[in-house]
Each structure stands twice: as structure tokens, then as C-alpha cells.
């Protein structure tokens, strides 16, 4: 035992050194074929950059819409002659409901004045014997997503309808919310399809690249098998090849995505401004970069595993 430890590295040292060798092997291969490696990384990076840029943009746009300056509202119109107490009871009820930020009572008289001021039709209304404008209660809500706002409004409207008979009409300001929500859902779905398809593309390209590399190293693999290398030892350089290809591609994809966001952000800002939402300048945060590199590394690993799984089993 003493003699063996004098001749051999400790198991931990051996493990570390064999990993270091395996890690460096792809660099040796790339050094011999730099153009091939560069082209593969660029191809993978371009594939990855589209879902990355689109994903970040969509995430930020959704964040901007969650902080809209105009809050969605539901307006309750009351029957003529409804008592102030009944209206106050409704106001008190909605004040404690989730998401409600404010409620504003507009009396029939205030309503008439507002109507006349806005539409300049004072002569028409004064010609009538009674004020046709009903008293109203405008309730504003706020939530994290556009979808949640629509749900909150619907819940409030239903609750008030269930608890008072003095309502003339309920008007929900949700058409634009629904439209926006549909657009965001569509973009979301598209994004997931991009992630799925482009992720699969990256995995397949890495798999093919590693398979080609495996063919170039057929003799090495055979010899390593003869001299007693374990399957893990033989696999390791190819797995590192896949991981490193993924990580390099992730880094280049990050740079391409930043460039794409420089072009796309102004356009997205115009869209959000039209909804009175404010979109900050979109860029790849350090957390996003961490997830990009981890994700691309894992895709590379998956590609390498697919490439080596069967061929290397035949060594044993």
C-alpha cells in the first residue's frame, strides 16, 4: 500500500488530473481545426441568439405592461333614485377587494357636467326635463399581469352584481386588455416554440460535431480501451467537447443577443408607450447570462451524450 501510494496519485488527484486532461483535449482538437470550430460556434450562437433576444424582450415588455400608468377600470352605473347609502355600501364593499387601488363616485350631476364639458352638448341636455346621466362608481385595479387585471375586474363586477339590485349597467374597460393579453400569449407561445426548435437544433448540431470528432479519434478510443481506460475516461473528453461548444456558443450568442436588443428595444418601446407603459432599455443581465451559459452548456452536454452513447459502448 505504502509502495502504491508512492507511485500513484491519490484517487482525488487522479480524478482531478484526468478531468483536466479531458477538459484540455477539445482545445487541442480546435487548435488543429480553428476555422471548423469557429464556424460551428457561430452557427450555434446565431441559433441560440434569437430565442435569447426574443425571450428577454418579451419578459421586459410583459414587465412594463404590469406597471401600466393607466389602470384598468370597471364602472357601475346606478338606477335613478338609488340612495347615497346604497352607493356608499357598494363603495365600501369594493374598497376591500383584492387589487382595487381606488374607487371614485361620480354623482348624476357631476356626470352631466363631465358629459357636457367633454362633448360640448350642453344645449341638448338642458333641453331635457330630467338628467339622463346615471350616478356611477369607477373602480380601478392593478395586478402583476394583464391577464390578472381582467380576472380581477370580472370578479369585482360579479360580486357587486350579486350583492346589489340598484345597478343599471356595468361597463368593464377590458377590450384593450384582452387584445393585449392575446398578443402577449401569441408571442409567448412563439417564444416557447423557438426555444424548443432552436434548442433541438443546437443539440443536434453539437451531437453531429462530436460524432465527427469521435470518428477522428477512433484509433485513440481503441487504444485507450486496450490499455485499460474506463468507459468514463474515454467518454470524458467528448462530453467536455459538447459542454465547451455549448458554453462558447452561449457567450457569442449573448453578444449577438445584445446587438439584437439594441435594434429591437426602440421598436418595443414605441409599442409600450402606446399603452402608456414604460419600457426600460433591455439588456442581458448577469442572472440571464448565467442561465444562458448553463442552458447552452447543458444542451451541448446532451448533444455529446447522444453522439457517444452507442459507439463507445462497443469498446467494452
Amino acid at each position: 500500500m505504502a509502495k502504491s501510494s508512492r507511485l500513484h496519485y491519490s484517487p482525488l488527484m487522479h480524478w482531478v488530473s484526468s478531468h483536466a486532461r479531458a477538459f484540455l483535449q477539445p482545445f487541442r482538437d480546435w487548435w488543429q481545426r480553428p476555422v471548423e470550430m469557429l464556424m460551428t460556434v457561430l452557427l450555434l450562437a446565431m441559433t441560440l441568439s434569437l430565442p435569447i433576444a426574443l425571450g428577454l424582450l418579451v419578459q421586459n415588455v410583459k414587465g412594463a405592461f404590469a406597471h401600466l400608468h393607466t389602470e384598468p377600470t370597471v364602472t357601475f352605473y346606478f338606477k335613478p333614485g338609488t340612495s347615497a347609502d346604497a352607493i356608499q355600501a357598494v363603495e365600501a364593499r369594493v374598497a376591500h377587494m383584492p387589487g382595487v387601488t381606488k374607487s371614485q363616485f361620480i354623482s348624476a350631476e357631476e356626470g352631466r357636467l363631465e358629459f357636457e364639458k367633454t362633448l360640448h352638448v350642453d344645449t341638448v341636455l338642458s333641453a331635457l326635463s330630467a338628467n339622463p346621466i346615471p350616478a356611477a362608481l369607477v373602480v380601478s385595479v392593478r395586478s402583476h399581469t394583464v391577464d390578472d387585471s381582467a380576472i380581477l375586474l370580472a370578479n369585482i363586477a360579479q360580486d357587486v352584481k350579486d350583492h346589489t339590485h340598484a345597478l343599471l349597467q356595468v361597463s368593464m374597460d377590458t377590450v384593450w386588455l384582452k387584445r393585449l393579453s392575446h398578443v402577449l400569449h401569441l408571442v409567448d407561445r412563439l417564444l416557447w416554440l423557438f426555444i424548443l426548435l432552436f434548442g433541438a437544433t443546437v443539440t443536434l448540431v453539437v451531437s453531429n460535431t462530436v460524432r465527427l470528432n469521435l470518428r477522428r479519434h477512433e484509433i485513440d478510443i481503441q487504444v485507450l480501451g486496450w490499455v485499460g481506460a474506463t468507459l468514463a475516461y474515454i467518454r470524458r473528453p467528448f462530453l467536455y467537447h459538447g459542454i465547451l461548444l455549448g458554453v462558447w456558443s452561449g457567450i457569442v450568442a449573448w453578444l449577438i443577443a445584445e446587438w439584437m436588443l439594441m435594434i429591437l428595444t426602440p421598436v418595443a418601446r414605441e409599442l409600450t408607450y402606446s399603452y402608456q407603459a414604460e419600457l426600460a432599455w433591455v439588456h442581458v443581465s448577469s442572472t440571464a447570462l448565467f442561465f444562458i451559459l448553463t442552458g447552452s452548456g447543458l444542451l451541448g452536454l446532451l448533444g455529446a451524450l447522444i453522439a457517444i452513447w452507442r459507439p463507445l459502448r462497443e469498446v467494452f
Binding site: H8, V223, V227
Partner: peptide, 21 residues
């Protein structure tokens, strides 16, 4: 079946490297 891109020393050393010498 020698490894073409490795020196004679590296080729011969292979079984020892694998065994953790």
C-alpha cells in the same frame, strides 16, 4: 495503432496515465 498527434513518450505513457501513476 499509435496515437498520431502524441509523441513517442506520450504513447508509451498512456497505460500509466490511465492508472494514475
Amino acid at each position: 495503432q499509435l496515437l498520431r498527434h502524441r509523441t513517442v513518450f506520450d504513447n508509451v505513457a498512456l497505460p500509466l496515465v490511465i492508472s494514475g501513476f
